[in-house]
Design a protein around this nucleic acid. Structure first.
Lengths: 179, 179
DNA sequence: TGGTACATGTAACATGTTACATGATTAG
DNA sequence: CTAATCATGTAACATGTTACATGTACCA
C-alpha cells in the first residue's frame, strides 16, 4: 500500500488542504483554485487522479458517499506524515512559461501593429488581475492569515511589475507606428 | 505529411531559431536555453522528439549527417508558414509554478526557522540571477536586439520584484524568532 | 591514451489538458 | 418540470522529466 515514492507538489497540496477538514475532489479543486491557483494550477482530472492514487497508497481515506454522489476524503496518519515530510523539503525553483515573452523574443518576425496589439491586450489582463488582488487585500481584513497575505503580496508586486515593465517598453514596441 | 494540427509553442520556437540558419538538436537546445530559457524551458529529449515529429509533418528537413553525427535541420516552406501563423496568434496567459509560494501558503505547518531558511536561500538564488541579468545587459552593447533587450528587461524587473517582496515580508516570516 | 565536450537518441514515466459521459439536487 | 449547478469520473492525448545507451572528436 504505502508506496514510498516522494509526493509531488500537487498531491501534497491536496493533503495540505485536507488538514482542515475532509473534502471532496470538487471542494479541493475550488479550494486550491482560490488559495494557490495563482501560482500553482491544477485541474479536476488531476485531482481525481491524485486522490485515487493517494488512496491506493494509504495517504487518504475515502468516506461514505453522501448526498449528490459526494465522496469526502480524509487524511490518514500516513498522509499527515507524508505531507509533513514534503513541506519540510527545500522548495524547488519556480518555473515561468510566458507565451507573450516568447512572441516578443521573435518579434522581428511579426508586424509591429500585431505585437503592439498583443502587448496592449496583455496590459489590460494584468491591470484587471492587479485590481482583483488589491480588492481582495483591502476587503479581507482578518480573513487571511499571514501566509496567505504574503502570497497575495507577491501577486500584487508581480502584477505591478508586469505593468511597469510594459509601460517602460520602448515606444516602437508598444505603439506600433504612431501617427 | 503536413498534418495540420496547431503547433505548440516549444516546436514553434525551434522553427523560429531555424530562420537564422540550419541547426542541430544540440544547437537548438543551447540557443533556446540562452535566448528564451528564462521564460520557456525545454529539454534535450523534447527537442529531438519535436524535430522528429516536425520532420514527419514536413516542417523541417534533416540534412546529411556531418562530423560527430551532427544532423542539421533546415526550415521548409511549410515550416516557415507554420511559424508565421503561430507567431501571429494571440499568446496565451503565462503560467507560474512557484514551489516556494506553495510552501509559504502552508507555512503554518512548518517551523518558522525552516521557513526562514527557505526564504533566505531563495533570496540568495534570485540575487545571483539578477546580477547575471544585469551583467548581461551591461556587457552586451549592441549584441542584443530590441526584442531580446525587452525580455531581458522583464527578467531584471521580475528578479528585482522578487527581492523586493522578500525584503518586505513580515519579520516573523523572514527571521524565524530573532534572538 | 585517457578524459572532456560534443552529439544523438530511446524508454519509461510523470504530469497536465481536453473532451466526453453520467447522474443528483436544487431553485425557480 | 426544467435549467443550472453540483459532483464524479474516464479516455485519449500532449507535454515534460529522468535515466539510460551509444558513439565521435578534440586536447593534453
Amino acid at each position: 500500500m504505502t508506496a514510498d515514492r516522494p509526493l509531488n507538489a500537487t498531491a501534497a497540496s491536496l493533503l495540505g488542504f485536507l488538514h482542515d477538514r475532509p473534502m471532496t475532489g470538487w471542494d479541493l479543486v475550488a479550494t486550491a483554485q482560490a488559495l494557490i491557483g495563482d501560482f500553482w494550477s491544477l485541474t479536476r482530472s488531476q485531482v481525481y487522479r491524485e486522490l485515487a492514487a493517494m488512496e491506493r497508497d494509504g495517504l487518504v481515506l475515502a468516506g461514505a458517499i453522501g448526498v449528490r454522489e459526494k465522496r469526502p476524503y480524509e487524511l490518514t496518519d500516513a498522509g499527515r506524515a507524508a505531507f509533513a515530510s514534503w513541506v519540510d523539503g527545500e522548495p524547488g525553483p519556480e518555473s515561468i512559461r510566458y507565451p507573450l515573452l516568447l512572441t516578443l523574443a521573435f518579434g522581428r518576425h511579426l508586424s509591429p501593429e500585431r505585437l503592439a496589439t498583443f502587448l496592449a491586450h496583455h496590459r489590460h489582463t494584468h491591470a484587471a488581475r492587479l485590481q482583483g488582488y488589491e480588492a481582495l487585500r483591502a476587503g479581507a481584513d482578518g480573513t487571511l492569515d499571514t501566509y496567505a497575505l504574503a502570497t497575495l503580496d507577491f501577486g500584487i508586486r508581480y502584477e505591478r511589475g508586469v505593468l511597469d515593465w510594459l509601460d517602460h517598453l520602448s515606444p516602437e514596441l508598444r505603439g506600433g507606428t504612431p501617427g
